[in-house]
Nucleic acid binder design. Structure first.
Length: 237
DNA sequence: AATCATTTCAACCGCCGAAAT
DNA sequence: TATTTCGGCGGTTGAAATGAT
């Protein structure tokens, strides 16, 4: 754990740096049990001394189900190179075309493997770029159901991303054409959702044992019944 | 085997827009 | 309406891992 935050008067100290196994277990167990609703409150309820942002980042980039973790394949690298040529540093949009990869992972890969080798690739795809851009602008906003005053630049970027599959022949996973961060599929536990506050309140009311949850100390990791080696069927250190 | 240099990548930061208060 | 909070994004950092000497 590098750079621990010094205690500031009146402000609870927050942990920073590398996540411990215990912290991972707590976050996973909490989300398995209660889902995702408010990262700041979830952190407290799970007994973590982490900011909500830190929890969200850890979950999205490392703990959530469906991440590949392995090396970027040649095919994936080609997709990243090509899409980056069209979209630029739109890491989230590029990641949406690569199943199981995070924007952070792709950004890292770009900087460490590709950024210095892209001059030729940029030239190669430049011919197609203008046509894709023109088509995206022309189709905006009527094909994307945007309000009149919507963010047309973002829509155009999305349109270019969608169109690029057809234009450049890049394979796109069907499930990713409509990636929605509000639902996450887990082969064992089904689908998680981002709950609204109302939904959480209703949930808590409907389950008597949770009605006084906020007054209770967090469950121990043992009570949560999760051990290292069982996390999403993977082992990690 | 020891030391120094380079690379990798997990996690932080600041900024911003949207939603809540 | 103004302010605060939250979460998403892209840029950046620096410890750990890996490679070179």
């Amino acid at each position: 754990m590098r750079n621990p935050t010094p205690h500031t008067k009146g402000v609870p100290p927050m942990r920073k740096g590398t996540w411990s196994v215990d912290e991972d277990q707590r976050l996973i167990a909490y989300i398995r049990r209660y889902g995702i609703w408010n990262w700041t409150q979830m952190s407290k309820a799970a007994g973590l001394s982490r900011t909500g942002k830190s929890c969200r980042l850890r979950w999205m980039n490392y703990l959530r189900p469906g991440l590949k973790r392995g090396k970027i394949s040649n095919e994936e690298a080609e997709t990243i190179k090509t899409l980056h040529g069209v979209l630029g540093n739109k890491w989230t949009l590029i990641a949406a075309k690569l199943p199981g990869r995070t924007d952070n992972e792709i950004k890292n890969y770009w900087h460490t493997h590709l950024s210095k080798h892209t001059k030729n690739n940029d030239l190669k795809i430049n011919d197609g770029l203008q046509e894709v851009q023109a088509r995206a602008v022309e189709s905006e906003p009527k094909n994307h159901n945007l309000p009149e005053n919507g963010d047309s630049s973002l829509s155009i970027t999305r349109a270019m991303s969608d169109d690029f599959e057809g234009y450049m022949g890049i394979p796109v996973s069907p499930q990713l054409s409509a990636v929605d961060s509000s639902s996450i599929s887990d082969p064992v536990y089904g689908t998680y959702r981002d709950y609204t506050i109302e939904e959480v309140d209703n949930l808590f009311e409907s389950f008597g044992e949770f009605s006084n949850y906020w007054d209770q100390p967090p469950l121990s990791v043992e009570d949560m019944g999760i051990t290292v080696g069982e996390l999403w069927g993977n082992t990690y250190t």
